[in-house]
Every structure is written in structure tokens, then in C-alpha cells.
Amino acid sequence: MTSLFLLQLLNGVQFGILLFLIAAGLTLVFGIMDFVNLAHGVVYMIGAYLAVTFTSMTGSYGLGLLLTLPATLLVGLVLELSVFRRLYDRPHLDQVLATFGLVMIITEGVQVIWGAAPLSVPMPELLSGSVPLIGAMRYPVFRLVIIAAGLLTALGLYLVIGHTRIGMRLRAGASNRAMVAALGVDIGKLFTVIFAFGAMLAGFAGAMVAPVLTVDPGMGEQVLILAFVVIVIGGIGSVRGAFAGALLVGLVDTLGRSFGPILLRAVMEPAAAGQAGRVLAPMLVYILMAVILAVRPSGLFGAKT
């Protein structure tokens, strides 16, 4: 039981880390540009598909991953320059509609290019093993690598945002966009950079999970909405909030699915508990969001409104 718990705990952390990579870029875009981007999930999906293509081209997952990063950065740049930058001054409704249109285009376009059937990336041999945890329990190395990569990214973001010039501008932009522009910062350029960088993080996440998940056209959407939940819980614009929210959502979702039915069995009949657990578990993160919002409408780390 404890080893199962530990295993699910690690799975939860891994899922949370993944959500963080996606939510980090999204929360900056929301917070600094006051911009609703529904198309962030499809960039994550593009990252996974590109990883598939580059890995088969180069024959190496590592090289594939390295190529995916600049490629998704480019995707972000193209999207920003062609569509998003015309939408910053528009009402949220227009932003929602235009990015919704992009989701339709890209989701269908991916099927035109790669087909509708799920794809996969072979696990790199070096990382395909597993390490012992407690007793006979083992954990796949690759999932640990995902956790490590995510933590390193989080640390990197923390250093960049907290201790560099661009990070300072970014924080300033998040608290008062007009003031930063008035101080002479080229806000348009700042937006482009943030946007492309956020896209690269999402693409990175997509490439990282390609060996452990199936790559299919629907993969971006579920993650997008969970990333929204993460951002709402953490507070819009706060990378720290996104980190805390992502871990919380990842853990609650994973542990709820595996232990919810077990816990319910303590208070009701096994059959009913199984059914109730299956129904309740996927709803848990949304209930968590509702509870947090009821207490703190602007999220855990959001500025009070």
C-alpha cells in the first residue's frame, strides 16, 4: 500500500510537472498581455508530433528533442506575428474566437499531415530502464527524467524571472503594462519574446511526453483545459502559482483516480464505491478549483482584486 502510494505520488508529480510546463507559458501570456489563448494546447500537440518526425528523421530521440525546441519557438513566433499581435487590443471575445479558429485549423491540419491514427516515439534505450524504489517496487527512469527536466525548467524560470533584466521587465509588465511602455520598454517586442518562449515550453512538454503517451490529435485539448484550471488555481500571471497549482492538480488527479475508490470503500459497499469513485475522480480537480475560487477568487498567488 505505501509503495503503491509512493508510486502514484511520483506519477502525480510527473503529471503536475508536465502541466506546469504548459501552464507557465500560458499564465505569462494571460497575465502580462491580458490575452485568452485557446491555441496553447495545440502547440503542445505540435511539439509531440514534431518530436515524432525529428526522431524518425535523425534516428535519435535526443536530437529530435533538440530540434523540436527551436521549431516550436518558430511556431510561436509565426503565430504571434501573424495572428496574436493583432488581437491584443481586442475584446476577450474576439481573442477567444480567433484562437478557437486556430485550434480548428491546427487540429485538423495535423491530421492532414500526420494522419488521424495515434503515433508514438520509441523510448530511448539509455532511459528505458527502471530504478528500484522500495523493496520490489521499480520506477521507470524516463518518468524520473521528465520530473527532473521539469524541475530544472522551473528553476531556470525562477532565475530568469527573478534575476535578469528581461525577467524584471516581465514582472513589471505583469503588474503594470502601461507603465512599462511609458518607461521606454518596447512592449511589442517583449510580448513576442514571451509568446514564443511560452510556445517553446509547451512544445518541450509535448516532446517530453511523446515516448510515454500516444501522440494523437486530441492530446492538446484535455491538457489545455487542465492548464486553465492550474492557472485559475495558481492566480493569473504568477509562475510560482502555476507551479503550485500544477503540482496540486497533478497530485489530486492522479491520487484521486487511484485511491478515491479505495477510500470510498471504507464508507460504502465495494461495488457502489467503485462506481462512485470512477464518476467522482475525474471531477475532483474541478471541485478543487471551485473550492479554491470560493475562498480566494483570484487564486492562490494572484493579486487580490
Binding site: D34, D89, R90, P91, H92, L93, D94, S175, N176, R177, A178, M179, A303, K304, T305
Partner: peptide, 19 residues
């Protein structure tokens, strides 16, 4: 900070009815 933030939000809401 908070005042400035809420004001810029109010300004954007004035621009758009859909804020």
C-alpha cells in the same frame, strides 16, 4: 500596484463591453 491594476482593467473594460 493594486489600484493601478484595477484601473487598467477598468479602462480595458470601458473599451470593450466584453471584458
Amino acid at each position: 500596484r493594486r489600484i493601478a491594476w484595477s484601473r487598467s482593467c477598468a479602462a480595458s473594460r470601458a473599451r470593450s463591453r466584453w471584458c
